[in-house]
Write a protein that binds this DNA or RNA. Sequence first.
RNA 1: GCGUCGGUGGUAGAGUGGUCAAUUACACCACGCUGUAAACGUGGCGCCCUUGCGGCUACGGAGGUUCGAAUCCUCCCCGGCGCA
Length: 405
Amino acid sequence: MVRPVSFRIEKENPGSLARAGVLTTPHGEIKTPTFIAVATKATVKGVLPDRFESLGVQSVIANAYHLFLSGLETVEKAGGVGKFMGTSLPTMTDSGGFQVFSLGVGFGKKVSKFLPEQKAVEEGVAVFDEELATSHGKLAVIDEEGVSFTSHLDGTLHRFTPERSIELQHQLGADIIFAFDECTSPTADYKYQKEAMERTHRWAGRSLKAHRQNVEKNAAQGIFGIVQGGRFEDLRIESAKELAGMDFDGYGIGGSFSKEDILGILDKVNRELPKGKPRHLLGIGEPEDLFIGVAAGIDTFDCVLPTRNGRNGTLYTRAGKINISGAQYREDFSPPDSECGCSVCKNHTRAYLRHLFRTNEMLGPILATTHNIRFLTRLAEQIREAILNGNFEDFKEKFMCEYKN
RNA sequence: GCGUCGGUGGUAGAGUGGUCAAUUACACCACGCUGUAAACGUGGCGCCCUUGCGGCUACGGAGGUUCGAAUCCUCCCCGGCGCA
């Protein structure tokens, strides 16, 4: 049968794993490399859906955990997350695995290890030790079958299993869904990392099976597996090999937290994955990351930074990031980025954006986010062009030379 | 003119004999955010420096009481309110 999601490589870059390609989905093609905008709760915060195309956004990724907690039924009745949002672009949903991590370790960078205790599961009913969870300030506890967690919104108890996550993602109806994985803390020790990775592999198998068994959804949605293994090279390679042996439509690289972490071994991971299938780097997407990722064989990226930074007043420019509320921009009547060409750069000045942020006007975050999104999608477009023209290395060097941060 | 209440750091506003260079908020300055519990968070915010449980100057002004005052007393200046 013809799969709903397929990938075609147009051109490879000699000397690296970089390639330009086309990812085909039921809702159209995605030209890669590209940046996927994050729409966690069915909205790219601050960006009107009817502007996606003019901003070069080819696809958005929503989140099963967040939409499960609010709006699931509505989204399903609306005809899926894309239709609900009012966009005809291809969509993706993340499985919620990352939330297990962020809720499990608490918020912020102060990560701690998960409780490895095996929670008994009887007759498919979750046994949740609330005291155990709350005593550690955590909202989630993991066991072999899945994860029990309390909603960060109202404290209600819920349980995700690979099967459940896939079911939710079927209801959300995105073109591409992700296997349910366990995203570990980057500081987790080898033993736990290995344990979590092996569990993720088992969950990957269950996720895949749950998806393929649903004939209708299997014909309408593609599924990506997620490589784990933390910062350990051998685990990452083992994970890639293991996942490569499963019949996924594409792969996500998860659990990456910094350039120091996964980006250094990314190419080794990607060499183990099927060359002809798309690779998505989950959650990573600073400008420099795009170059590193693409060179290591990544096709698509998603990252909250362009939107979050936009809301918080940080703008991307060719020369690096700037904090627009800085005093030095008070009378800077130049555009955010002189070469960007987006509607914000065409019509507005740094001084105006600064003014909007200082006065707490909602248009400030909106304009900043709009520009940031365009900055990333445009950069990806330029990278794609460079690959097609055979001058990826030159473009990379030129950009990195000017971009400071 | 009499009476009364009040004058604190950019602003508002705590403090009402020592632990006060002075709570807090806002403003201001800087920085950070990487599969979004984030339109959020952290730090700074009198001056000086060899940056220290350091020095100096400060709570309208001048004096005084006291070991010690933003805090008590006296006079002056300024403002609100009331009566003339």
